[in-house]
Design a protein around this nucleic acid. Structure first.
Lengths: 154, 154
DNA sequence: CACAAATCTTGACTCGTTCAAGAAAAGGCG
DNA sequence: CGCCTTTTCTTGAACGAGTCAAGATTTGTG
């Protein structure tokens, strides 16, 4: 996944290839599950002039186009990842908010057979595992969910 | 589930029995999956003097105590329900944000066997089904996710 | 190279939620 | 039953992720 691939991805989705978009894709690749603020910070290391609105816009269109996946565990802000279309799920640490990938255990489309769907037409089943991450398990639970990884700026 | 039961629930959780708390419990019972604003509105029909902060506080302690369950699908505000401890899941309409209950199809603890959990200690698996609700399926998709049920006040 | 459409910058703003301080109510005890 | 401590609630300000809007730039096409 280099810039060349990203360019193809964008063109394939009928999106123009711009410096902000490439920078966002690189940032998301480097920081899986990063929130918008972290993506913005990472982007600005390479492209200092990119506005926060541009990052919101870019993450928005990339999500709609399926080039990135947006997740948002309860109590968390939106997070983004490049891994897409492989039906994996997420573990979220109740203590520090850390997110990790979990490959689907049941099959390609796990739990997609809900018993009574009340007439809803279901197109996706999203599984979120809740628990405690390794570092919060060993150390005494001091860290709060808000005090997570990278900080955001504005 | 009448006021008498609610009182027992509260005392059993070492919580004082107050008019705001009973009103919130009644509101959540009457409006499953209601957001905080809707709960506040419903509460004020019976207890006009209850502050919005009280509703936030009450919903907070009730959630911590396990008397109500808080859910928050991506892109939605927090929602609450009384159904608790029966491991059911939710379908969320991508178009209007409507939420419905779905009983667990796989078993008592579905999908709780993640393959590689990266050292996380998992205590819950939450399944969210995404799709389109009956009314958004038939009618052309006009309604937006933000224009949902009851309105909030302040 | 010029032009229309898409994209980005700038800056204000919305709204769900939280923070903080003091007033009011709950429940135990005498 | 009424006092006292603690919990809970009211009031009002503040926070912050995300959105809106208008105008400037850029992209890709003809």
């Amino acid at each position: 996944m280099d810039d060349h691939d990203f360019e193809h991805l964008l063109r394939g989705a009928d999106l123009r290839v711009t410096r902000p978009r490439l920078a966002v894709l690189r940032a998301v690749r480097r920081h899986p599950h990063a929130d918008t603020g972290s993506v913005l910070a990472a982007v600005r290391l390479e492209e200092p002039a990119v506005s926060h609105q541009a990052v919101y816009d870019v993450l928005g269109v990339l999500s709609e186009s399926g080039l990135v996946r947006r997740i948002q565990p309860a109590g968390s802000v939106a997070r983004y990842e490049l891994r897409v279309g492989d039906n994996h799920h997420h573990v979220v640490c109740r203590s520090c908010g850390e997110v990790a990938d979990v490959d689907c255990a049941v099959g390609v489309r796990p739990c997609l057979d809900a018993s009574d769907t009340h007439g809803f037409v279901i197109d996706e089943a999203e599984v979120t595992y809740w628990g405690t991450c390794p570092s919060c398990s060993t150390t005494s639970p001091t860290t709060s969910p808000t005090a997570s990884s990278a900080s955001s700026s504005n």
